Simulated assay, not measured.
Amino acid sequence: MSDPILTLKAVHTDIAQYHILQGVDFEVPRGEVTMLLGRNGVGKTTTLKTIMGQWTAKSGEILYDGQDLKRLPVSARARAGIGFVPEDMGIFSDLTVEENMVLGATSGPLDPQRKEWLLAAFPALGTFWNSEAGNLSGGQKQMLSIARAMAEDRELYLIDEPTKGLAPAIIATMANALRELKAQGRSILLVEQNFLVAKALGDSAVVMDDGRVIWTGAMAELASNKDLQENLMGLSMEAH
């Protein structure tokens, strides 16, 4: 296993009166895809938002390349090299696809070579480049959300359920783009409910339950062991 790009140590996060994360510990190895798995409502999205700074950790450490992020605002975490794709996509519907992409390139104009690579990875975005993002289909909006996070080269990507409710062809397009990111040496922490996607993309897996990490290991080990899946998540992932 390579050295971790991200390490969470005993992270606790409260939202209003609720204690959501209760001592979360795990690592994201550099240059790998780490799957963050578990049933709905166990704290996966809160974990991503805590790493990104949208929710404030009450205690613990969030180490990115050895630097504790806990006191940094969201903007500083993005500038440090972290890209975030939220579950709700967060695109600007009244702006064009191009304008959304330009906003994703926070340190300057959209690099022409980067644009060329992204349009090759997500061809539909080129077709609707000058169209308002609100006119895109659900799958196209999800593509735009992911592509916008990739508009600038980042070391770590946090991605929350990118394939939820999408057609198989669009899922395949997204999976290929994420494989290309990994091939470029980038690290990905991915929340995903689609077992086939998790199995195909994941190098390692972190399983959560009730705000805690209950298992970490190789994705291949989890994918091949139905008893382990049922013990950790209450069902076989193939039925998920």
Rank of each mutant, 00 (worst) to 15 (best):
M1S: 15
D3Q: 15
V11M: 12
V11P: 05
H12R: 13
Y18C: 08
L21F: 13
L21P: 07
V28N: 02
E32T: 13
V33H: 02
L37T: 01
L37S: 02
G38H: 04
T45V: 08
T46Q: 07
M52A: 13
T56Q: 15
A57E: 08
G60N: 13
I62H: 02
L63A: 08
Y64V: 02
D65S: 11
G66Y: 14
Q67A: 10
P73T: 11
P73M: 12
R77D: 07
R77V: 04
A80C: 09
G81Y: 07
G83E: 01
M89H: 11
N100D: 04
M101C: 05
T106I: 14
S107N: 13
W117A: 06
L118I: 09
L119F: 11
A121W: 02
F128R: 13
E132H: 15
N135R: 13
L136P: 15
S137T: 12
G139I: 07
K141S: 03
L144V: 05
A147M: 06
M150G: 05
D153Q: 10
D153C: 04
E155D: 12
D160G: 11
E161H: 11
A172M: 09
A172P: 07
N176D: 10
L178N: 01
R179C: 00
K182W: 07
K182L: 07
A183Q: 09
Q184M: 12
R186I: 05
S187C: 10
S187R: 09
I188A: 01
V191A: 06
Q193L: 06
N194P: 06
V197T: 08
A198F: 01
K199Q: 14
A200E: 14
M208L: 14
G211N: 09
G211T: 12
R212C: 10
T216D: 00
T216R: 03
T216H: 02
A218Y: 09
M219K: 03
L222A: 04
A223I: 06
N225S: 10
N231M: 15
G234Y: 10
S236P: 14
